[in-house]
Nucleic acid binder design. Structure first.
Lengths: 198, 198
DNA sequence: TCAATAGATGGATTGCGTCTAAGAATACTC
DNA sequence: GAGTATTCTTAGACGCAATCCATCTATTGA
């Protein structure tokens, strides 16, 4: 990305150092009981520096996924209106492909120990919504009504997030997120969509 | 609910008074630029009292929907596993039936003026997720896999939120939220679910 | 008159996230 | 080497949301 030796003061603390300290504390005391000051103190840096690496406390857990969602959103807005069929699947597959977030998986599997159940649910919903918004915009540009676009986009976005959750809860060892996403996509075709209607 | 004249000091400020003051200020200065202190000052009460009526600043806009979602969640957990087909539709229809949230509709139609675009998206996602969690739990109890349950639940929850959004954006005058929800439910049956798969 | 109840209030506290001015460590140039 | 631009760190202050508590005020009913 950047030259190994550029001008200026070298970075003293890395994202990894901070994330590691944060996860330790989350496990020890729980998420809410851990302040940003606690994290930076353990990492040996000042509180101010934390926000040079993460935009918020929860970002420690979610930055990996946020980067991937950001790229997917960029890709989605660039899709031409007439060719969204295969493109969406390709972009979402690229999103999950090779994804293995240490911090997030740790948090998901230890969510109750970290007192994170509510927090994770909340934060996951935000990511799902961000992805869904981009998907809905694409569907809407393709001529789908706003109402239908919101709904179908929510389904696809949920497939991504549900795949990550299923992967994390299965131990994060067996299979990849991409495998789970394939399961999710095939599940969409088999679901009883008429159930609530009947 | 409570007797019209019970013991104790009567309420000096109502939710409506506070909500009205809040919406005025949101329109004048924007949501972020309006502090809770500003709202209570205009309403003529102390800042402390605000949290006797609303649990948070955004709750001013969402308390109406939150109440309805809360009731729907209660109903959903009480549904027996073997009879979820018609029950889900009934409960979700009851959720939207007669819903006409002044504050929320105002905020949605004036979201850009209030500087609320991001905020509304965020908050709507949280409500959608709360509803989706209850729906997924029910589906899961009925034998659907966790992965598939998350996905189908997200679709139904999105139908509710999308119906509200569509209703608000159409001027909030023509038709009811329930009408839009009927549209949403029928849209689910007509959507090209195989699109991302092909 | 006197409790009991329900609400209102001021004030303190915690913690997040933002911002700014100052300082420290590095590379590049002469 | 001396100076300079660049990049990062840091201390400190700020505004605000939200919680908590002790105290005060208004009402009902005995």
């Amino acid at each position: 990305m950047s030259s190994p030796s550029r001008a200026g003061r070298p970075k003293a603390s890395s994202r990894e150092t901070l994330a590691e300290a944060a996860c330790e504390l989350f496990l020890e005391r729980g998420y809410d009981a851990t302040s940003v000051a606690d994290i930076t103190q353990r990492a040996g840096v000042s509180r101010s520096s934390f926000f040079n690496y993460f935009s918020s406390k929860s970002d420690v857990l979610w930055s990996g996924l946020d980067d991937r969602i950001g790229r997917a959103v960029d890709d989605l807005v660039a899709v031409p209106e007439d060719r969204q069929g295969g493109e969406v699947r390709r972009i979402l597959t690229a999103l999950v492909d090779g994804f293995a977030p240490d911090s997030l998986a740790l948090a998901m599997t230890n969510s109750s120990a970290m007192g994170l159940d509510d927090e994770l649910e909340r934060d996951a919903a935000l990511r799902q919504a961000r992805l869904a918004a981009a998907l809905a915009d694409l569907a809407h540009r393709s001529g789908v009504s706003a109402l239908a676009a919101d709904i179908v986009a929510a389904t696809w976005a949920a497939a991504v997030i549900a795949a990550i959750r299923a992967w994390a809860e299965s131990g994060a060892g067996r299979g990849s997120v991409a495998d789970r996403f394939v399961d999710a996509m095939s599940a969409i075709g088999r679901l009883p969509w008429s159930a609530p209607t009947s």
